[in-house]
Amino acid sequence: MTPWQKALKDTAPAVRTLGADAVRRLGNAGFRETAREHPVRELLIDLLQDILRETRIAAARALGSLGEFEVLQEHSPRSSRDQREWARILRGEIPPLKRIWPGDLTI
């Protein structure tokens, strides 16, 4: 099991959220197709139903940045607040990730 899979399955919501961001960073760093074919994709889909909104949004943004728009349409949220965020992601309006080191070029 990869560190990303472990993070996405962690019992701590903050770790799951950071795991989704890590997958997004990998996709932005040129590993988009690899991430789409990896088991983390299914774990991100599962996180779209997470109890913590921050984690659901991080997973949706990760999937959106991987180009998984059909998945997001299939897993449309119930809450109107989440629906608004999904709509932004589907329009390609995904806010950039915070830079975490000097020279970090991921978005």
Rank of each mutant, 00 (worst) to 15 (best):
P102T: 04
I107C: 02
T11D: 06
G92W: 05
V71K: 04
T55F: 03
T106R: 14
G67Q: 06
E33Q: 14
W4I: 05
L18R: 14
E70V: 01
D104G: 00
L97T: 10
A20I: 12
D104K: 03
E85T: 15
R81W: 03
L72C: 09
R84N: 07
T11W: 04
V71G: 00
L26T: 01
L43Q: 15
V71Q: 01
L63V: 12
L8E: 06
D82E: 15
A14V: 12
R16Q: 07
R61I: 01
P96I: 00
Q83L: 09
E70L: 00
A62K: 11
M1D: 09
R32K: 15
D10G: 01
W4Q: 13
D104V: 01
E42H: 15
Q73Y: 00
G67W: 08
A58Q: 12
V23H: 09
L97P: 06
L90A: 04
I45F: 04
H75L: 01
D10A: 14
I100K: 12
N28V: 02
R56T: 07
V71N: 01
T34A: 06
P3R: 11
G103T: 03
E85A: 13
W101F: 08
L105A: 13
R32S: 13
L8D: 09
D104S: 02
T17C: 12
R41G: 04
I51D: 11
L47E: 07
T55S: 10
Q83P: 05
A60D: 11
P102L: 02
A60R: 15
G27K: 05
E85G: 01
W86A: 05
E54H: 06
T17V: 01
Q5G: 09
I57D: 04
F69L: 09
P3A: 02
S65K: 12
T11V: 03
G27R: 08
S79G: 11
G103K: 02
L97R: 08
L44D: 05
D50E: 11
I89P: 11
K98Y: 11
D104L: 01
G19K: 08
D10T: 02
W101Q: 01
E74M: 08
A87D: 14
I107F: 09
A20K: 12
G67R: 05
K6G: 00
R25V: 15
L47M: 11
A29Q: 09
T11K: 10
E33C: 00
G92S: 04
A14Y: 10
T17R: 15
G103P: 03
K98D: 15
L8T: 10
S80K: 13
K9F: 00
T55C: 12
Q83K: 15
G103D: 03
L63Y: 08
E68M: 09
P13V: 00
A20F: 10
R91Q: 15
R99F: 00
V40A: 04
E54L: 06
I57Q: 12
A29W: 06
S79M: 07
D21S: 10
I89D: 07
A29H: 04
F31W: 01
E54K: 13
I107T: 12
E68A: 12
A20P: 13
F31M: 08
